[in-house]
Nucleic acid binder design. Structure first.
Length: 271
DNA sequence: CCAATTGTTATTTA
DNA sequence: ATAAATAACAATTG
């Protein structure tokens, strides 16, 4: 599930515990989510530390502690929530940070998520040199065009999914962007016309902004259905529905695997 | 049993 | 050698 806005939403879920001390840590050391982590080190070092700051960038998340950094990637089905203590670990809870009042839970039933721990004050390697987010000024129209030229033989859908270029954009956001820009997802990046970049650039930023407002901006309480706040005017609400129709023109939507992922678009809305 | 899933990575292919 | 396509990863659901 988690793309740009969902990641930000889940980041906010742990915020009630900011400034508080982690009293103890629960984790399943055999968990696949800890495959690149020294779980003993994490278990030894995290208790006693202050939770200082939570950062999100694209699909990546990082929690700054007193003397270290906790990296979290939510993968395909990961989520974070904050429950009042006492809290009994549930199935697929891979990591729980306990403060005196809270249980900060990382749960992921599909185990594509990842947890990492970096000791020490200096920024970990994996939190350095993050690619510019589509909402930063560095993500310019010129940069977008250059990337399309550099990956000329890749479909535009496949390009939008690249995290080193469009951090935070995933399958549903890519479809939403292309639908709004009226571009077929299988178009080759190198064959876009110069006149098409302004629209594409605008739509990328628009979908990122709108998604953050509608999903992360709701200031969520406990595990709600994140999607209920997404308007019916978005492709999102129709793309998986059997017999789903384009919310703009009511044409039945097309679905096909492009760039390895099921993609959805409206044939009559293409420009 | 088969196919699907809003993600990433290692391996294979072009 | 580089870039793109594919398989694999795991659990669950229809």
């Amino acid at each position: 599930m988690p793309e740009l806005a969902e990641v930000e939403y889940y980041r906010q879920q742990w915020e009630p515990a900011l400034g508080q001390r982690i009293e103890w840590v629960h984790l399943n050391a055999a968990s696949r989510c800890l495959r690149n982590t020294d779980s003993d080190l994490l278990l030894n070092e995290v208790p006693g530390q202050l939770l200082r700051q939570g950062l999100a960038h694209g699909k990546q998340m990082c929690w700054r502690m007193g003397q270290g950094w906790l990296g979290i990637h939510l993968g395909m089905a990961g989520r974070l929530f904050c429950a009042p203590a006492p809290y009994v670990p549930h199935r697929h809870d891979h990591l729980i940070l306990f403060t005196s009042q809270h249980a900060l839970v990382f749960n992921d039933y599909r185990m594509f998520g990842e947890i990492r721990w970096h000791s020490g004050p200096e920024t970990p390697l994996w939190w350095q040199h993050l690619p510019p987010s589509p909402l930063e000024p560095a993500f310019s129209r010129r940069v977008l065009q250059r990337w399309c030229e550099r990956h000329a033989r890749l479909t535009i859908k496949g390009l939008l999914l690249r995290q080193d270029r469009f951090p935070g954009v995933g399958n549903w956001m890519a479809d939403e962007i292309l639908w709004r820009a009226r571009l077929h997802p299988a178009r080759l990046a190198g064959e876009l016309d110069t006149s098409e970049f302004p629209t594409l650039h605008r739509r990328i930023r628009e979908v990122c902004r709108d998604a953050l407002r509608v999903i992360a901006g709701v200031g969520g309480s406990l595990p709600p259905d994140l999607n209920v706040h997404i308007p019916a005017t978005w492709l999102f609400q129709h793309r998986w529905r059997p017999g789903g129709r384009c919310p703009r023109c009511q044409t039945p939507l097309k679905r096909e695997k492009i760039a390895g992922r099921t993609s959805c678009w409206c044939e009559t809305c293409l420009s």
